[in-house]
Design a binder for these strands. Structure first.
Lengths: 280, 280
DNA sequence: AGAGAGGTATCATTTAAAATGATATCAGCG
DNA sequence: CGCTGATATCATTTTAAATGATACCTCTCT
């Protein structure tokens, strides 16, 4: 009985299927079938009852499953103990408010479904501060948009997001010559810059500007008729805000990049996360 | 990192030597060297410091050693839990008083040096009773001498032992026509029978007979001048009894056999014990 | 009843890893 | 200096893992 047998068996127990387990582990189904068979022969006991729609654990299989979990966890722990830098099981990922608010929650929830043993922390800060953290190794990776220090960082994933210009509904709108611009206080924020650009394009010169450091505050400001802003499309689309806010899609996409430090040894967890992003 | 790597590493840590570990595990030395090297590369850390006379653990190696012990123990536990009959880690061995007194202690002490995880119990009883126990599966194996039920049992090991006729020193001897015979109360005891045979050979017909069920009692009886007996040579040789007892080696050896039940599935522990006996 | 979907089992074959054998290297010791 | 007793390297063999093709079973849908 090798630890690999336990990994395979654990996966079979969890998926309740030889073929599903094969899929998850990246093997071909007959291999799983044979490994389990061999394990059963070695232990001298049936671990699974095979049915035409999957398998279920026998009592002994259940007992082995418990042990398998404990043993495999201990092996992970051992690796983490011996070389914490390489095998630690948590990730610290940086992201701006706008990115973290929208994409991150769903992203990590599906990541964690596959890798339940990895802990994830999100650090939200200004783009510049986050880059410094990544540079000093305080965080493992960083979601950002726009330019970044390409000498130091390396992009491992990119996705595109629509931007929308949001403004108050007519009823809520305050009466003024020029609208107020509600922007993020981070001077590197791509949405902030897009809004300022937009105001130039439309010759809104004397607009008053309010800075916020939270996305929620900006949205509430728009709802209350305070002024207009630019945010990721998914912010308004994923909420009930469609009724309380008027929005208009901007023609170009914003690209969100996930970058890591160049040259640095990547932890197992970071590798898994990168692989996960690549598989999307 | 596979469990096999941990087994190898554990053995290296215990023997403090790659070549010794290779010997113990039945591998060739370069293989151990490569496995450890690969493990170190995988973990990204040195586990051993190599010297010209063996190896010592680094701090990280020590940490891994702790985990390895726990993990491997858990794996043994898992097997024992899933199929207790096959993987239980204790043996119950039967032996007559005469055998158990002499050979067993040293035998098991060296067996346990190699297999510290196996528990051993010795059951001492009459030869017939022990054979019944073996037949009913109450014991795993049995040391005996002379004939046994060959249809049911199978010999896996045999060793020869000298017999000695012991008698009191001249000073202690009681004055009688015929000596008293001190014999084991087990009618199947080979020493008992040898003594009775001896007495016939020497035409000692009217000897009085005393039966004892303990070897110690017989020895003490001889010391006290009560009479003569036949015991394994090692009994008198391994003690300080050479001065208090007079002895004479008998010409033929007695053969002690270790037998197990035919056809029965042998537990891992029993297999290990048989292999150990074979290696003597 | 027949065809298809979705699962497991079997088996011959390929591929990768374990294990070996021969040999090199290094340090200590008489 | 040459021997001993240890580890390292490397080409080779042997063994085990993994695959691909295919068979088989049972349930479902038409």
């Amino acid at each position: 009985m090798e630890s690999q047998d336990l990994r395979i068996f654990k996966c079979v127990a969890e998926t309740k299927s030889l073929s599903k387990a094969a899929g998850v582990l990246g093997y071909v189904q007959p291999h799983i079938s044979q490994r389990i068979k061999k394990l059963e022969e070695e232990l001298g006991i049936k671990l699974l009852t095979r049915t035409n729609r999957g398998v279920t654990l026998t009592d002994e299989g259940g007992a082995l499953f418990n042990y398998a979990q404990r043993i495999l966890l201990l092996m992970e722990e051992a690796k983490a103990e011996v070389n914490p830098n390489k095998f630690r099981r948590f990730l610290i990922i940086g992201a701006s408010q706008t990115v973290s608010a929208i994409k991150i929650p769903s992203l990590f929830s599906s990541f964690l479904k596959e890798h339940g043993d990895i802990e994830v922390k999100i650090k939200t800060d200004r783009k510049q501060a986050l880059q410094e953290m990544l540079s000093y190794g305080e965080i493992d990776g960083l979601f950002l948009s726009g330019t970044y220090n390409e000498a130091q960082f390396e992009r491992v994933y990119r996705y595109a997001e629509k931007m929308v210009l949001i403004s108050p509904l007519y009823e809520a709108r305050e009466e003024k010559d020029q609208p107020t611009l509600l922007i993020n206080s981070d001077v590197n924020c791509i949405y902030r810059n897009r809004l300022l650009e937009f105001s130039k394009e439309h010759h809104i010169h004397k607009a008053s500007i309010m800075e916020f450091d939270s996305l929620e505050a900006i949205l509430q400001g728009v709802r209350d008729g305070l002024g207009m802003s630019v945010v990721p499309a998914s912010v308004v689309k994923s909420r009930g805000d469609i009724k309380s806010i008027q929005y208009q899609e901007l023609p170009e996409d914003v690209h969100i990049d996930f970058v890591v430090k160049k040259g640095k040894q990547r932890s197992q967890s970071l590798k898994k996360f990168s692989r996960f992003l690549g598989s999307l």
